[in-house]
Design a protein around this nucleic acid. Structure first.
Lengths: 106, 106
DNA sequence: TGAGATATGTCTCGAAAGAGACATATTGTA
DNA sequence: TACAATATGTCTCTTTCGAGACATATCTCA
């Protein structure tokens, strides 16, 4: 694959995260429960996209209030992690998004 | 398909158009060259999404300036239509988007 | 002839989003 | 012990985006 195409793909992935961060997070969490900081790091290494934590944490709280994810607190030493996992409602939403987006972009 | 799911799908399509209007327009134009007003009407009937002409025309001009589409003027009576068709550059962009989005949402 | 549809464009105002600082506490490591 | 990393959260300022008005001209049909 050409270098230019790689760059373009990177830009597209970035745009997807900017506009569908909630859905991309649901997708990440579905494969494995995670806490905010881990999500930030994973997205950076896997997708090359930098999520601002100032945007991420409020988004996670919104998703939880909406019932799409739920958290349990895990004390790792003296630090507290809020580990999020996807709910049935979240999984349904994600699946509908995946179906619809594939339909629209085929 | 349940009514609720239909509603949700409609919301998703709306969100796609809000965030990827340029790409959806490229996709429309690729199947058939069109002018702005036709695009607006087609999107309304085919997708149930209302595009504001106050957003659409500037977007079409931006896409043309970027070299993704090109226009020819057609006089229909005394009215002038700017008929847009996709360029090679536009088709390449569209195809990369389709590939990348399918990858990300599978 | 007047109203609604066709056709393209700009402009303004308020809302939402983005960048990045401010804030705090712990843990690991050099 | 000091600095970087881990961990979560809020807040402000700027920029961007969206809704809808303003603007103009033609065409069609009742």
């Amino acid at each position: 694959m050409k270098n230019l195409e790689k760059q373009l793909k990177q830009q597209i992935v970035q745009r997807i995260f900017r506009n569908f961060a909630d859905i991309m997070i649901l997708r990440l969490i579905q494969t494995e429960p995670m806490w905010g900081y881990k999500i930030k790091k994973e997205v950076q290494t896997r997708f090359g996209v930098k999520l601002r934590h100032g945007a991420l944490y409020p988004l996670l709280n919104t998703l939880e209030q909406g019932g799409y994810i739920k958290s349990r607190k895990q004390a790792k030493g003296g630090r507290i992690r809020k580990i999020y996992q996807i709910t049935q409602k979240g999984a349904t939403l994600l699946s509908t998004y995946q179906k619809t987006i594939k339909e629209q972009f085929q």
